[in-house]
Computed example of a mutant assay.
Amino acid sequence: MSQSFKQSPDNALKETGFARIIPCKQLDVADPLKWLGLGWRDAFRAPVITLFFGVLFTLAPWVIYYLVELTGWHLIILPSIVCFMLLGPFLAAGLYDVSWELEKGHQPSLWHSIKAINRNAVNEWAFGLLLLVIMIFWLRVSALIHALYPNYLEPNLANLMPFLLLGTVVGAGFTMLVFFISAFTQPILMERRVDLATAVLSSMNAVWVNKAPMAVWALIILTCVGIGFITYFFAFLILMPLIGYATWHGYIDTIETKRERHYD
């Protein structure tokens, strides 16, 4: 952890000069697997809501794929899908609400989960705008990569490979950035009345402090996205809600609270 951050003995927020950082716990490498187990439990306890959000996460990439097919710009199909995934943490607010309601012993409802995005409305919508700006910038970069492709070349794998590799490297950089700033930002904004800078910095700090466990978590998310691709997005019906629920439990497990939580 950066030496400029002062660890508070009473678990108060740490000052960074322009924002605050909520302290985080030290995680074990296997903790992300525990989050998945708890996510599965939430999915089975709220099957209808899980299916609703699963359908949303499945339809969205289909629509993106169809629209890109209409343009004929095949090189930006993958970046477009990745852009949808960049907005995933923002769209998953409803799933976080379901897990939070179950944690409190309440019966979750679809309408309550839909309204979750307005719980800390200004900062949550600002977070969505931040992700949207990153998405637009990534689309512009991918369009530039597409523009570099010579029109006289046949669109075969050998000719496309340099551009696909370049797009993959650039996309990996964008994805890593978004993972750092969004790993726990949305749950923090939903549960705590804090500003966007505090939530983003707290998320980045938690990822940085727990590099190995969070790398495992990132690999799990990447694997689920890969499974979604090879199943023509049908797997997103289950996998995306599962990731959403598990993220909430990861937040509970990672970000410090003044009172111990008992939901495991």
Results as ranks from 00 to 15, higher is better:
residue 222 L to E: 05
residue 170 V to M: 04
residue 151 N to W: 02
residue 159 N to S: 11
residue 231 T to Q: 10
residue 222 L to M: 14
residue 227 I to Y: 07
residue 212 A to Q: 13
residue 195 D to W: 02
residue 152 Y to M: 05
residue 186 Q to V: 07
residue 211 K to V: 10
residue 204 M to L: 03
residue 228 G to C: 08
residue 176 M to S: 14
residue 150 P to G: 03
residue 222 L to G: 14
residue 195 D to I: 01
residue 222 L to C: 12
residue 231 T to H: 08
residue 197 A to I: 00
residue 185 T to A: 04
residue 211 K to R: 12
residue 161 M to P: 02
residue 173 G to Y: 00
residue 160 L to A: 11
residue 223 T to V: 15
residue 162 P to T: 06
residue 199 A to W: 03
residue 185 T to I: 01
residue 166 L to I: 09
residue 215 A to G: 14
residue 229 F to G: 07
residue 159 N to W: 06
residue 184 F to S: 03
residue 151 N to E: 13
residue 216 V to D: 10
residue 152 Y to V: 09
residue 173 G to D: 02
residue 164 L to C: 09
residue 191 E to I: 08
residue 177 L to I: 12
residue 149 Y to F: 11
residue 150 P to E: 03
residue 213 P to L: 10
residue 210 N to G: 09
residue 201 L to D: 00
residue 174 F to N: 08
residue 188 I to Q: 10
residue 206 A to Y: 02
residue 169 V to E: 07
residue 180 F to Q: 03
residue 221 I to A: 10
residue 210 N to I: 05
residue 167 G to W: 12
residue 216 V to R: 11
residue 220 I to R: 04
residue 180 F to E: 01
residue 187 P to L: 05
residue 152 Y to K: 08
residue 169 V to M: 13
residue 159 N to C: 04
residue 190 M to S: 05
residue 219 L to F: 14
residue 204 M to P: 02
residue 222 L to Q: 08
residue 164 L to V: 15
residue 210 N to R: 11
residue 166 L to W: 02
residue 156 N to L: 07
residue 216 V to Y: 11
residue 228 G to L: 08
residue 200 V to H: 00
residue 211 K to Y: 10
residue 167 G to P: 10
residue 168 T to I: 12
residue 210 N to V: 10
residue 204 M to K: 06
residue 166 L to V: 06
residue 181 I to F: 06
residue 185 T to G: 00
